[in-house]
Amino acid sequence: MENKNKSILIVLGHPNPNSYCAKLAETYLESAKDSGFEVNLLKLKDLQFDYNLNFGYDKSVKQELEPDILLSQSLILKADHLVFVYPSWWASMPALLKAWIDRVFLPGFAFAYQKHSPFPKQFLRGKTARIIITMDAPTWYYKWFNRSPGVQILKHGTLEFCGVGKVKVTYLDQIRFKKQKQLEKWIETIKQLGAKGK
Rank of each mutant, 00 (worst) to 15 (best):
K98W: 04
L24W: 04
I132V: 15
S31K: 14
L47F: 15
Q122P: 02
L75T: 00
D136S: 15
F111N: 08
Y141T: 10
P120A: 12
A95P: 04
W140R: 09
P67I: 02
L70A: 10
E30C: 04
H81F: 14
D58C: 01
R103A: 12
A95R: 09
W140A: 13
A91M: 13
A22Y: 05
L24G: 06
G126S: 10
D102Y: 11
K62L: 06
P67G: 05
D58L: 04
L44N: 00
M135I: 00
E66H: 12
L124Y: 09
D102H: 13
Q122K: 15
Y113D: 11
R125D: 01
Y57G: 02
L75C: 00
Y113G: 06
P17Q: 11
E66D: 13
A95V: 13
A25V: 05
P107I: 10
A91I: 01
F119A: 07
Y142I: 01
N18H: 14
N40T: 09
A32I: 04
P138N: 03
F119N: 09
L106I: 11
S88C: 11
S117C: 10
D46G: 05
Y142F: 15
Q114W: 01
P118D: 03
K62G: 00
L65R: 14
L42E: 04
Q48F: 01
P107S: 08
Q63D: 12
S31F: 04
D68P: 11
P87R: 03
L44A: 01
L96D: 04
A110E: 09
A129N: 05
P107K: 11
E38D: 14
G108L: 04
G36M: 03
Y113F: 15
F55C: 09
G126N: 13
L24V: 07
D102K: 13
N54W: 04
L106S: 12
N54H: 08
K23R: 14
F55G: 03
A99L: 04
L42F: 12
Q73G: 10
L44V: 02
S72G: 15
F105E: 04
Y142M: 10
L82V: 04
Q63E: 15
L24Q: 09
A25W: 06
V39R: 08
A99R: 06
P67W: 05
P120T: 14
Y57W: 14
V39T: 15
Y57Q: 07
M93H: 02
V61S: 07
P17E: 13
A137D: 13
I131D: 00
D102T: 13
A32K: 11
L106V: 10
K33D: 01
L82F: 08
P138E: 11
P17Y: 07
